[in-house]
Every structure is written in structure tokens, then in C-alpha cells.
Design a protein around this nucleic acid. Sequence first.
DNA 1: ATCGTCAACCAGCAGT
DNA 2: ACTGCTGGTTGACGAT
Length: 366
Amino acid sequence: MTKDNRDKARRRNLRCEGGDASEAAATMNSRATAVLRATAVLRAPAMAGEKLNGGSSMTLLLQKETLPCSPDHIQTFWVQNSEPSFQGSKSSVNVVNVRDRPFFRGVEREENENEDDEDFEVFPHQPGKKRRLTSEQVQFLESNFEVENKLEPERKVQLAKELGMQPRQVAIWFQNRRARFKTKQLEKDYGILKARYDILKRDYDNLVQENDKLKEEVYSLMKVIPSEKEEQNLDDTSCGAVNSEHKEQTDMIINGGSENESKVTLPVMEIIKQKDANSAKSDVLDSESPHFTDGNQSSLFEPADSSHALEPDHSDFSQDEEDILSQNMPLLPKFEVEYVCYDEPPENPFTFRFPVEDQTFCFWSC
DNA sequence: ATCGTCAACCAGCAGT
DNA sequence: ACTGCTGGTTGACGAT
């Protein structure tokens, strides 16, 4: 018999016997003695982890007819059975009739159904019967979950006592609650990533448009400059050579000069730099645009830095543009980056190259 | 009848 | 060996 099989058999036996013996005993004991039942209706803390002390509105729910105790008993019970985080000098205690409260409907019914059952075996698991927890039980568990989503053994027993549940039920509820929380968190993160991608995509499209405009302007400027020179050097025999050199430079700029950028002569670079300065105010690249300041950024993301977006143009995606994109998408999973089809394998898996079409961006819509 | 929710369960893994 | 966790599944139950 393997270890796993032994484990499974043991666990099945435990469940068939009504769960862990000590847990069951604790529950039954609590039920036998808990003529007084208490729960707390707590305002849900604004944020998980916020302590539920001072100022929480607290309601003690008492079974009116069977309550043999004074307010002193109530206080004693509460202090003995509450976690420190639920205690507070500012907490208000209200004694109310709970006959109508949903929290006790199930208990009451069970008790009535088992009036002759002196050992209080009203909670053992009945195969095929599932009872929903009452709204009050769920609310109490939710409050505790927000304080701490893990469940220590003592706390589990404590909660089970206070809620009239089996500790195993409490444990299962916390497990399921964690699973639900994780699912929601994943959905939320996906939404944030999607929004982030949309912004990057929009910026990229705008950059492409800006790039095209710059190219056109450079072309038009290149037409003007040679004509001026021609006028000044009409008889200059080197004119042809100058124009030839100039044309090479222009082509290098427009068609991709990353190979030897330093050879670009100053006049052309100045023109481009002036254009950069004018374009720096573009809303496309404005680091103060709303998507950087909406205050709703997930911790998953760092603000995109578009400050490099108007470096001297390279028609192909060169190193600068790769840097821009890699900075803007620092946390994209590697598989997404490598989705681009390469003619040749990339030398570095973290550098990537965009094809002329922006098919790279299809990974969200695929 | 169908669908969504949720308590309960199972299998596998990890820590003690 | 024991315990608790995660991920996945099952089945009861309520809403439509």
C-alpha cells in the first residue's frame, strides 16, 4: 500500500466518521454549552488586512427564550471567544432578538429536527445534503477572511465555535474563498494588462503616424537645401559630389541609418532635432497624459517611459525602438514577445523585432 | 430545462 | 505520519 493510498484511506475514514474527532468534539461541546450564541456583524474593512478593532459596530445575537445569562455573561463570553482583533473599547454591543435572523434559522431547524438527540449530533455530514451557510455566517467568515485569509488551527476552532459549524466546514470555506479570490484577482490583472496593452498599442500607432510625417518633412527639406546650395555654388565643380553625399545621407536617414549613424552630417541632424523638440509636446508622448496619472495602476506595471520615443528615426525597428518597446512592456511574458516570426533566430531572446505590419500586437486579440 | 453559485470532495504536493 | 494547501471536480440548490 503506497503512502498516498494510505493517506486517502485515512482521510476518507475521517470524513465518514464526521471529521476529525477533536474538531467534532469541540463543535459538539460548543453547541452543548452555547445556549448563548454570538456573532459579530462587522462593517467590512475597506481594505484586506485592516484590523477590526475600535469603532466596529458589533451586534451580539442572542436566543431570547433560552438565554439564561445577564449582560455580564455576554461580556464574558465575548471576551473569551473573540479574537483580539475584534475587541475594542469603542465597540458597541447590541442585544437583539435573533429568532428572525437568518443566521439561526438553520440551527433552529436542526435543533428542532433533533430534539431527542441528546448528543447534539446535528452537524455530521449527510451525503447528498448540502446546506448553504447563512448570510450571517458568510458575513462573519468574510470579515475574518479580510483580516487574514489563512486559517490557523486555533482560529479555525474559534470560528467554528462562534458560528456553530464544524471546524472542517470553516477550513473548507476558507479554501474555497481563497480560490474564488484568486480567480477574481486573475480577472482583474488581465483587465489591467489589457488596458495597458491598449494604451501601448495606441501610442505605437500614433508614433508610426508621427514617423511618417517626419519622413515627409525630411524629404521636403532635402529638396529645399540642395537648391540653395546650387544657387551659391553654381560654378562649383564639386557640386555633384556634394549633392551625391547629401543624397546618401538623406537616404540613410529615411531608409534606416542605424548602421552608421555617426556619419549623418550636422545640418540634417539639426533639422531632425528641431522637429523632435517641437514634437516633444505631442499628447501621444506626454508623460502626463491621463493613463499615467489615473492613479489606478496595478503594481504589476511601471509607468511607461516615452521619453526616448523621438530619437533620430530608423525606418526599421532598431535598437532604440526595441528599447522603447521593451521599456514599455517590461513584464510581458516571454512567449508573447517571441511570438513574432523571425526570418532568422534572434540573437537575444529579450530583443525583438517588429515586422512592418503590427501583427505583433495580435496576441491579445487572438 | 438550463445555468451559475458554492459547499464538499478528491488528488497531489509540501512542510514539519 | 500528519496536516494543510492548491487545483480541479462534483452535486445540491436557487434563479431564470
